[in-house]
Amino acid sequence: MGAGARGEADALLLRCRALVRPALAGAVGRLHPWTGEMAAFSLGWADVDGTPEPGASEGKGVRQALAVLGAEAVGADGRVAVAGAVAVELVHAFSLLHDDIMDGDALRRQRETVWKAYGTGPAVLAGDALFALAVQSLAEVPSTHTGPAVRRLGETLTDLVRGQADDLCFEDRPWTGPDAVRPEAYRVMAEHKTGSLLGCAAALGALLGGAPEATVAALDRAGRHLGVAFQAVDDLLGVWGDPAVTGKPVHGDLRRGKKTYPVLAALAAGTPESRELAALLEAAAPGAPAPGRPGTPEAPSPDPVDAAGTLDDPAVAARAASLVERAGGRAATMREAVDQLAAARRCLRAVPLRPGPSRDLDALLAFLLHRAV
């Protein structure tokens, strides 16, 4: 993706954020002052003491951009485009607050996460407040299609929670054997956890604007494919991303032992590197026997990493990252992202959309793929 295309995508995201920001700020302003302060901190608007922080990152705003563009693509009124964008952005903010607690992440966008800054209990409360506000703000939209829109948001939340539950359950499953997580199962999890909200974002404004059901369904399906691609790219960044850009430590996902697509694809490849990676992961897992004890896997290479180390050891994590790449996990994940984005484009081209917003949606899809390039 060239600099010009990146600049176009950045300008598109900036336009959508500027369009949605006043309504989003108005919605957050309805919260209790304390939960509102935590919400403003989480959204990158203010410091931990409530002081405006214009230099902080507000994130890319991908979901609100999808909501705006999905509405514009069917000629919906600008007010419903913004209303849909506010609802999905509030749900996204709620999900990040709770996700950071569940994953124990101390940093997001190069700042403390809400639970680190305010405490776990307050962060849970702030997330609950954002969730309730999302439903309330959508239910108040003056449209004859508000009821179906609220139902769609409720279904999305159910999907999102199902995906998060699967992601957490994956952590307790083995790396190999009949109970191991396969790439296919991970793909389903990613569609629920990430794709459901992106699909809802793309569809919600169109639904509120009275678009035909086939068009709404196509936008939702495109967003779900985009979500799997987005998660695949996030998985690449979680292993090989630049900490100065991601705000997270190098090899962060590997060091936490997360079952991400690159690792699962590498393990499924069936190569010598796959088997070496499996032995390393099993030996480095919590509770694995130390070298020399019964049940300890033998070193599969002449230059093994000490199996007594854990994945939190930078040397072990670096060795694992190298094996994932050599086993083809990195390339397979990029192919998955490309294939999912192609599927998203096919969904968009299957229904009549306005040319300008349709081109903008295509530019946004390309930008999301090339975050990892």
Rank of each mutant, 00 (worst) to 15 (best):
C169R: 15
G177C: 01
T120M: 10
V135W: 05
T120S: 11
D99E: 06
T113L: 03
G119T: 01
L90P: 02
G163Q: 10
F94Y: 15
C169F: 09
V91T: 06
D166W: 12
C169I: 03
T146K: 06
G127W: 06
A139N: 08
G119L: 06
F170W: 11
P183Q: 03
G154T: 14
A129M: 11
D179L: 12
Q164G: 10
D179V: 00
D159M: 10
M189V: 11
D159R: 15
H92K: 08
W175N: 02
G163Y: 09
A132D: 12
F131K: 05
T158W: 11
M189I: 07
G104I: 06
D100I: 01
Q164A: 10
V161Y: 04
K116C: 13
H92W: 09
D100Q: 11
G163A: 08
P142N: 05
F170G: 14
H92V: 02
R152I: 05
L130D: 12
P148G: 07
G127I: 00
Q164S: 01
R111L: 02
D105C: 06
V150I: 08
A132V: 08
D159G: 01
G104H: 00
V188N: 09
T146A: 14
R173K: 06
R152M: 15
E140P: 00
T176Y: 04
L168G: 09
T146H: 00
L133C: 13
P142M: 06
T158D: 14
T158A: 13
P178E: 07
Y118K: 03
G147F: 03
G147W: 05
R108K: 11
A93W: 08
V188P: 00
A165S: 10
A85R: 01
V150M: 03
L133F: 11
S137C: 08
K116E: 09
D166C: 08
G104M: 08
D179Q: 13
D159A: 15
H98Y: 01
G177E: 07
R173S: 13
Y118N: 00
L125N: 15
T113A: 05
G119H: 05
Q110C: 13
D99Y: 04
L133A: 12
V124H: 04
G104C: 10
E140T: 12
A106E: 13
D103R: 00
A180R: 04
D105V: 04
P178R: 11
V150A: 07
C169L: 13
T176H: 02
V150F: 07
D172C: 06
L96G: 01
Y186R: 02
S137A: 14
D103A: 04
W115R: 02
L138W: 06
L168D: 02
S137H: 10
L133V: 10
E155L: 12
P174R: 07
P148M: 06
F170V: 12
V124T: 14
S143D: 02
E171R: 15
G147H: 08
V124W: 07
S143G: 00
H98A: 02
E184C: 01
L157W: 09
R162L: 15
A87I: 09
A139P: 12
K116F: 07
D103T: 03
L130S: 12
Q110Y: 07
R152C: 00
T146V: 15
A149M: 07
L138G: 05
D128P: 05
A126T: 03
A132F: 00
H145I: 00
W175Q: 04
